[in-house]
């Protein structure tokens, strides 16, 4: 019912700062879309424009078939979950959840029914008469969720809703939110700077940097075939290894001279070579990896060191025996990506 279309949406602030450069994409009905990027990349501005809390400088925004550029936030049929929950501190949980309905002149009996329904769904039944200050962080987060779902909106907006929770609770809430969205089937836009949240929750990810969309794609596409060095280094922990290399006569060579892969002819000069730490094979091969530090993570190990004088990380299974010092490694050509060193774009 509700797909969202952004057509050349742009935001310029009064001081001339262009927070969002013209961007277009479409969110399908029922899709869970994550906007991810470092702080200041324009992802929150974009979300706030969709919510109607920020004016749209240029472009067209439609929710469903309706152009909503000038529609008041209350009339866009949306619900939003804020970073600091934004619960009304003087109202009980019940009133917090029901406040939006009350303003829509919903009959009290129906408000009560819907609030109870939402509370049951979120396991908040026992807390309905408490004030937000008497709740834990996770419970407050659920109340904020309740306030959103009780309205039965066409679109959910999430503005970094988990960033105030501790790591353990964050993992748990991540799963709960995703499950809830699946169940309700409501189109959702979720803003975060945490690439793990983006990868685990999204149907599709939009990676933003400096007000520009770097890449749109499924988590798997974004992870395995990044469009730029920015996406490559932003997504994934540890990030993709990026090593300077030379493209010469159809061969890519590291700075130490080792040839690592064949490349289409007709191009030469410096390139950046990217490979995920888990795609590197250790123990044999032409390249040398100088291991300086071994990070023991239980289920696996991370080896930090240098390849051709540049920082490099390799992910190995816990069974693999390694020691400090130089080791031969193999870089499978199929797992490698080549980027233009100057622009960062994928070749």
């Amino acid at each position: 019912m509700a797909n969202v279309t952004l057509n050349q949406i742009r935001k310029v602030y009064g001081n001339g700062f262009e927070a969002v450069k013209p961007c277009s994409f479409r969110i399908e009905d029922g899709e869970f879309l994550v906007l991810v990027g470092p702080s200041g990349c324009g992802k929150s501005t974009l979300l706030r424009m969709i919510a109607g809390l920020e004016d749209i400088t240029e472009g067209e925004l439609s929710i469903g078939d309706r152009l909503v550029n000038t529609v008041d936030p209350a009339n866009r049929d949306i619900a939003m979950v804020f970073q600091n929950y934004a619960l009304y501190p003087h109202m009980t949980v019940r009133k917090n959840i029901g406040y939006g309905l009350k303003n829509r002149k919903t009959p009290p009996a129906e408000i009560a029914r819907k609030v109870d329904e939402a509370a049951a769904m979120l396991n908040l039944g026992a807390y309905l008469d408490r004030k937000p200050s008497q709740l834990s962080g996770g419970q407050r987060q659920r109340v904020a969720m309740g306030r959103a779902i009780v309205r039965d909106p066409a679109l959910f907006l999430f503005d970094e809703p988990l960033s105030n929770l501790d790591a353990k609770l964050r993992n748990q809430m991540r799963i709960e939110i995703k499950a809830l969205q699946r169940r309700l089937g409501v189109t959702s836009i979720y803003v975060t700077h945490d690439q793990v949240e983006a990868m685990t929750m999204a149907d599709r990810i939009v990676v933003l940097n400096g007000g520009v969309i770097e890449q749109i794609g499924t988590p798997s596409e974004i992870y395995h075939s990044p469009n730029s060095t920015f996406v490559a280094s932003f997504m994934g922990a540890p990030p993709m290894n990026l090593v300077k290399a030379q493209l010469d006569e159809g061969t890519v060579r590291l700075d130490c001279g080792t040839a690592v892969m064949a490349a289409p002819a007709g191009r030469s000069g410096p390139v950046t070579l990217g490979i995920r730490p888990e795609d590197v094979r250790i123990g044999s091969g032409a390249a040398r990896f100088d291991i300086a530090l071994i990070e023991e993570l239980g289920a696996h190990r991370l080896l930090h060191g240098q390849v051709a004088g540049q920082p490099f990380t390799v992910h190995v299974a816990k069974e693999t025996q390694v020691s400090h010092g130089p080791q031969p490694i193999e870089l499978p050509p199929a797992a490698m990506a080549l980027f233009d060193t100057a622009t960062g774009a994928r070749l």
Partner: peptide, 27 residues
């Protein structure tokens, strides 16, 4: 007063008068 409170109230359909009476004064 946190910025998000007025934003949440606007999304909840509260106008300036309602926000003042329902949220700001009790707060």
């Amino acid at each position: 007063v946190p910025e998000e409170l007025v934003e949440a109230a606007r999304i909840d359909g509260a106008g300036p008068v309602r926000f003042f009476i329902d949220i700001l004064v009790p707060l």
